[in-house]
Design a protein around this nucleic acid. Structure first.
Lengths: 198, 198
DNA sequence: GTCTATACACCGATAGAC
DNA sequence: GTCTATCGGTGTATAGAC
C-alpha cells in the first residue's frame, strides 16, 4: 500500500525541517540553535514543530541520522573496482562539498549535552556503528594495498578523516576569499592524505 | 614601585579564575559554561566574579589571550638554530600536551556568539595577528628549507596546524583507551605533517 | 571585595482554541 | 495539525547589605 498524499506531504515537511536544522546547526551549533530559529526558518509555528519532533535533541538526532544514511548511500554507490584510498578521498570530498552548502551540522563532539542524549538514541548508535565499520573496512583495504600507512592504527586514520570533514580550516580559508571553493576542498583533502611535508 | 601584597593576591585570584575557565571551556564549550560553573569551580560567589571580569565574553577573551601569550613565549623560547619545521612540530606537540591537561579551551570557531565579541576586543585581535605572523614566518622558513610543501599556500598550512591543535581526534582516541597519551600526541603530530599515505 | 537575593530575558515544552 | 499564549526553569548581570 503506497503512502497517502497526506503522508507524503508530512514527510516532505519533515525533510524541510531537517534542512533548516542542518543549516542552523552548521551556522550556530546545537546549543545556540533555538526551536524558535528552526520554526522561523521553516516558516511554521514552534508548537507545530513539536508535532513532528518531540524534543530539540531528537531533532538534531534525526538530522545527523539522515546525513549518515546519505553517507552510507554514497559509499554503497561507489564501484567496488575503485581503489579503496580513492573511495575514502571521494567520501571526504563529498562531505566537504556538502558542508559548503551548509548541509553538514557541527560534529556532536562540540556539545557535551547533545552527545549524551545521542548515546541513548538506539537508531543513532546503530548508524554510527554501521558507518564506522564501512569506513574501517575501506581503510584496512587501503592499507593492504599499501596506499595508506600500515604502521598507523585504523582508528587513528578513521578519526583523522572524520575530523577533517568538519575541520574549521574550511571556514577559515573560505573567509580569506583567496581561493575558489573547489580549490579549498582540494587543499583539505590533499593535506589530509599527503600531509604538509615537501 | 612594586605591586602591593593585595594586588598580588588579586592577580593570583584572576589566574585561578582563568584556570577554571580553561577547564570548563575545554569540558563544555563556551555556550554551555555558566558563570555559576566558574564561580563554583573557583570557590567564590558569582557576584565576586563580576568584580574581576565584566562579562562572560571578557572572561573567555582573557583566557584565550593568556593562552596565546603562553604560546608566543614558547615560540620565542625556542633556539633560532633549530629547523623551522621542528619548531612547528614542537609547538603543536606542546599545545596538544596542554590540552591533555584540560588547559586549552575549545576554539572560538565553535561558538558564533563568542567569535563576534572577540573580534571587537582589541587586545585579542592584536594577539591573534602577532601569533599569526610568528607562525607564518616559521612556515615560510620551513618551506624555504624544503621541509614543508612549497606548493601549498602558507595560509593552508597555518590553519591546518591550528585545526590539528584543537582536533577532536585527540578526545576520540583517548576515549578508546587503546594508547597512552604520549602515543596519541605523536600520532596526531605525525599524521598532520606526514599525512596518511604509506 | 565578598556575600545573598533578585531583576530581567530567553528558551524548551505544553495547553487549548480553531 | 496549525496557531497563539503561557508555564517552568535557567542564565546573565546587578543591587545592596556587610
Amino acid at each position: 500500500m503506497r503512502p497517502s498524499f497526506k503522508q507524503q506531504q508530512f514527510e516532505a515537511r519533515e525533510d524541510a525541517i531537517l534542512d533548516a536544522v542542518n543549516l542552523l546547526l552548521a551556522r550556530k551549533g546545537f546549543d545556540l540553535m533555538t526551536m524558535d530559529d528552526v520554526a522561523a526558518e521553516v516558516g511554521i509555528a514552534k508548537g507545530s514543530l513539536y508535532r513532528h519532533f518531540s524534543s530539540k535533541e531528537s531533532l538534531a538526532a534525526a538530522a545527523l541520522c539522515r546525513l549518515m544514511r546519505a553517507t552510507l548511500a554514497v559509499i554503497n554507490g561507489q564501484p567496488e573496482s575503485e581503489p579503496a584510498v580513492d573511495r575514502l578521498k571521494a567520501i571526504l570530498r563529498w562531505t566537504l562539498e556538502r558542508r559548503l552548502q551548509g548541509q553538514v551540522p557541527h560534529l556532536p563532539s562540540t556539545s557535551v549535552a547533545l552527545q549524551r542524549s545521542l548515546m541513548l538514541n538506539l537508531g543513532y548508535v546503530r548508524l554510527v556503528m554501521k558507518l564506522n565499520s564501512s569506513f574501517r573496512s575501506l581503510i584496512e583495504r587501503a592499507q593492504a594495498d599499501g596506499a595508506l600507512d600500515r604502521s598507523l592504527p585504523a582508528d587513528v586514520i578513521m578519526f583523522t578523516i572524520y575530523a577533517r570533514s568538519c575541520d574549521p580550516t574550511l571556514t577559515f580559508l573560505r573567509s580569506t576569499r583567496s581561493y575558489p571553493d573547489e580549490q579549498v576542498v582540494e587543499y583539505l583533502v590533499r593535506t589530509c592524505f599527503d600531509g604538509l611535508n615537501g
